[in-house]
Simulated scan of single mutants.
Amino acid sequence: MSDLIKVLIVEDDDLIAKRYEMILSKDSQMQYVGRAASGYEGTMLAALYQPDIILMDIELEEKQAGLKATEKILNYLPDIKIIILTVIDTDDVLFQAFEMGATNYLLKNMPAETILTAIKDAYCGMPSLNANIAGKITKEFKRIKTVEESLLRYFHMLVLLTPTEMEVLDLLLKDYSRQEICKLRQVEASTLKSQVHSILKKFEKNSIQEVVTVLRELQIPQILAKHNGLLTL
């Protein structure tokens, strides 16, 4: 590797920032270009120095300032590689960071060798995700794929429902009892029973509670509410 790797540190804790600066100074392939103590300052210095790598703390002037800075920087300077610094590897925060384009993450107390390897790998386009987060991401992608497949399947089933069946299902999702539904819709219990049976057949379920549960788990009512033209539920 002939070129020096320019690294910007965005960290509000002076001691931690100093430790990273010392680690970088001991490696002949690294060039420490500066340190920012806030997300705003980090964004400004990223534009000014255009580093190869940014070590970005998540919690700066506010809880997710590092994530916001990451998003802004990568919107304007997408070639910069950002490695997230964190104390606890909370799943939802890390997934947000990777969705925004972060390359890797490091726990703040990791050894110097691990930090330097992560920087060099990111610079070479080979982010060395540790086994912990790699496993989490793989698991999350599988979960998302399963959810997407389920969403498509159940949306298809919803399309097969008649307007009357949609109305009945809507009331069931709102926790109306069958007696209340009969009264609201002014129908006999036998008529409602027939409509529920038809819904179950189309959803391939044995009980209406199974249908209601799976639709709620997939957040289908909320999705439909945001897209009124899609289906009336």
Rank of each mutant, 00 (worst) to 15 (best):
E188M: 13
V10T: 04
G229M: 05
V147N: 07
S150G: 04
N130Q: 14
A17K: 10
T213I: 12
E11R: 10
L233W: 01
Q50C: 12
S198P: 00
R153N: 11
A47T: 09
M1N: 12
A118Q: 01
V33T: 10
V87G: 07
K142N: 11
Q222G: 01
V168G: 05
P111S: 05
L8K: 01
E210P: 04
S198V: 05
S25G: 14
A17F: 11
P111L: 06
K201V: 03
E140C: 05
K226T: 10
F95R: 13
V93K: 11
E11L: 10
L77Y: 14
P163G: 08
E21W: 00
I199R: 04
K26V: 04
N228Q: 11
A37G: 02
H156G: 14
P127G: 05
P127D: 09
P111W: 09
K18D: 10
S38G: 08
L231G: 02
L172D: 01
L106W: 06
I88D: 06
L158E: 04
G135E: 05
E180C: 04
I84W: 01
T232M: 03
D170K: 13
M1W: 07
L158I: 08
V10E: 00
I133G: 01
L48V: 09
I83K: 02
L192Q: 14
